[in-house]
């Protein structure tokens, strides 16, 4: 099929077409996925819509992996994985972020690629689940860990094609704090994944923090303190309280001050830990 151009919005049917147009138009163009960010922040640019590219909305889930295309919406992602204990953090992130209407519009790719959006829920959840991303760039296809994708400069332009999450015997949980009960951007987010051994010790622990700084990232110092240990929500809270201000610089913004984001982190870690431990599903909130 052809590229359909309507001046300010170009709808493509192949990833290579999107890259060609983005290369040609440079900073005057932007990828459009669900549109919930670009309609607010980039309306002066030419939108290159990925909506008509086949495969980008595919989701597959089996015993080994979850593979989700970048154009999968938050709602479709939540519906596809609800009930899988290892993926509970992601189901909560996708199912509780934003509002029902936005969850039907905003995409996985948009959540991970919007570098100026600091409160993404899917990013910390996917970091805790050790996700990888497949990208198409002008110089070819690349597979990167999500951690590398978020924290290192990647060739521009690029299209995020899909996200792959390995299935494991771990449980996971995702906890978000807002000013109101729902509908705001989260002030701070903690996602946590671990295997709890029969003697109660934590193995393969991954803790990720979102919204506190500009980019979501793993809390490796806390992971190192707790890995292999038998923890309670009180003991993990104590460790988190000792580390928080050493390991993060809280972000000041209109919705919350940096010091406050740091202050609440230990309680969120404790809550994520108890959610993960309490139920087979690792239900979050």
């Amino acid at each position: 099929m052809m590229v359909i151009s309507q001046d300010g919005l170009i709808s493509v049917t192949r990833v290579s077409q999107a890259l060609d147009i983005l290369t040609r138009l440079g900073e005057t163009a932007t990828v459009m996925a669900g549109g919930t960010w670009v309609m607010r922040e980039a309306r002066d640019r030419t939108f290159v819509s990925l909506a008509n590219i086949p495969d980008l909305t595919d989701i597959s889930l089996d015993a080994q992996t979850l593979v989700a295309g970048s154009m999968v919406t938050h709602q479709d992602l939540c519906d596809a994985i609800t009930g899988a204990p290892d993926l509970a953090a992601l189901a909560t992130a996708a199912g509780k972020s934003a509002t029902p209407a936005i969850r039907r519009m905003a995409t996985l790719g948009g959540n991970l690629c919007t570098r100026d959006f600091y409160s993404a829920d899917l990013a910390p959840a996917l970091l805790a689940l050790n996700a990888e991303v497949d990208l198409e760039t002008s110089s070819g296809r690349q597979t990167l860990s999500l951690e590398d994708y978020l924290n290192t400069p990647v060739d521009r332009p690029h299209i995020l094609l899909r996200v792959t999450v390995p299935r494991t015997a771990a449980r996971s949980a995702h906890v978000r704090l807002m000013q109101r009960q729902a509908g705001d951007y989260p002030l701070a987010v903690v996602s946590l994944s671990a295997v709890i051994t029969p003697d109660g010790a934590l193995r393969d622990l991954r803790i990720a923090v979102g919204s506190v700084e500009k980019r979501a990232r793993r809390w490796r110092a806390l992971e190192a303190l707790c890995e292999g240990q038998t923890m309670t929500s009180d003991s993990i809270r104590t460790h988190a309280a000792l580390r928080a201000s050493q390991d993060f610089v809280g972000r000041d913004a209109v919705d919350g001050q940096g010091w406050y984001r740091l202050r609440v982190l230990p309680a969120l870690v404790a809550r994520a830990f108890s959610d993960m431990s309490r139920t087979e599903q690792g239900a979050g909130r």
Binding site: Q6, G8, L9, S11, M32, G35, T36, M39, R40, F47, S49, A51, A98, T99, P100, A101, I102, R104, M105, G183
Partner: peptide, 26 residues
Amino acid sequence: GEGFCGACTVQIDGVPKVSCLLPVGS
């Protein structure tokens, strides 16, 4: 005009979405 309030909700193919963030060309 930012997706937060829902006052602009319409249904697209029977599903509620916020019309302030839907480009008409899509």
